[in-house]
Simulated assay, not measured.
Amino acid sequence: MKKKKLEMILDSLKPHPNPKVELEQYTINGKLASELLFLAQKDFLNNIVLDLGCGTGRLAIGAKLLGAYKAIGIDIDRESIEIAKENAKKVGVEVEFICEDIKNINKNIIKEENLKKIVLQNPPFGAQKKGADRVFLDKALELGDVIYSIHNYPTKDFVIKYVESKGGKITDIYRVNFRIPATYKFHKKRSVDIPVLIFRIERG
């Protein structure tokens, strides 16, 4: 599948109708999602993908479309999970979705011990709840062999130091733009592009 086609498929999926600001719920657009997925495909092909904080399921669904052996999406928000299930059904892929706080997830959810575990995540940036991004990084390093994680550009130095302090190794950093549409009442513009970084991390 070509990147443009995947982008169109992902953009056609149902977004969250009632995003919650305290969870920093922003639907990842098809362009950014497909960029991350094509970067990560070499790692997750025929392996297991864990989409932490999966929202409406775009990364997990895209990974399955691009050849992941199994995809699991996890989110604390029940409404997100129900929409994610609808979206997976719409495009005809099988994805396991779990409604749970990622803090409570452990390796027992993965039965295929012989396959690599690849974490894809677009975690909260920590704008509403300080340290929210750390929770996701900690869990990703616990569960994943390789992690692809999106973070706000100004946090670059923090993410590098934090990952290294936890024994992880950052192998690549990609600079991309995240287009955020007007989602909450305090948003004044129709949309805004913010610079973000995709980190490829290997567990130490």
Rank of each mutant, 00 (worst) to 15 (best):
Y153E: 07
E113D: 14
V135E: 10
K90D: 11
D138C: 08
C99N: 14
E94K: 15
C99L: 03
A71C: 07
F125K: 04
L137I: 13
L120P: 01
K90E: 15
L141H: 06
I98H: 03
K117C: 12
E86W: 02
L115H: 06
K166N: 13
C99W: 03
Q128S: 11
A132E: 05
D133M: 04
Y153Q: 15
I83D: 12
I109H: 03
E164S: 11
K166A: 10
N122K: 09
V159Y: 05
Y148D: 05
P124G: 04
V135S: 09
S149D: 08
G67T: 02
Y148A: 13
L65G: 02
N108A: 08
F136D: 03
L115Q: 11
E86K: 09
N108I: 03
C99H: 12
D138K: 06
F97T: 01
E112L: 11
I147C: 10
K161M: 00
N122I: 09
S80Q: 05
A132H: 05
H151M: 02
I105A: 12
P123T: 08
D77T: 04
N152Y: 07
E112F: 02
N122L: 11
K111Y: 15
K85I: 13
P154W: 02
E96P: 02
K130Q: 13
D157T: 13
N104M: 07
G126S: 04
I160F: 11
I102D: 00
E82A: 08
P123K: 01
N106S: 13
S165D: 03
V91M: 08
A68M: 04
K103F: 01
Y69T: 13
D157N: 14
K130M: 13
K129H: 09
E82W: 01
E112D: 12
P123L: 10
I110R: 08
G92V: 11
P123Q: 09
E86I: 12
L66W: 01
K156W: 04
V119I: 14
I109T: 05
P154A: 01
D145I: 06
D157L: 13
K117I: 12
K90G: 14
K90H: 04
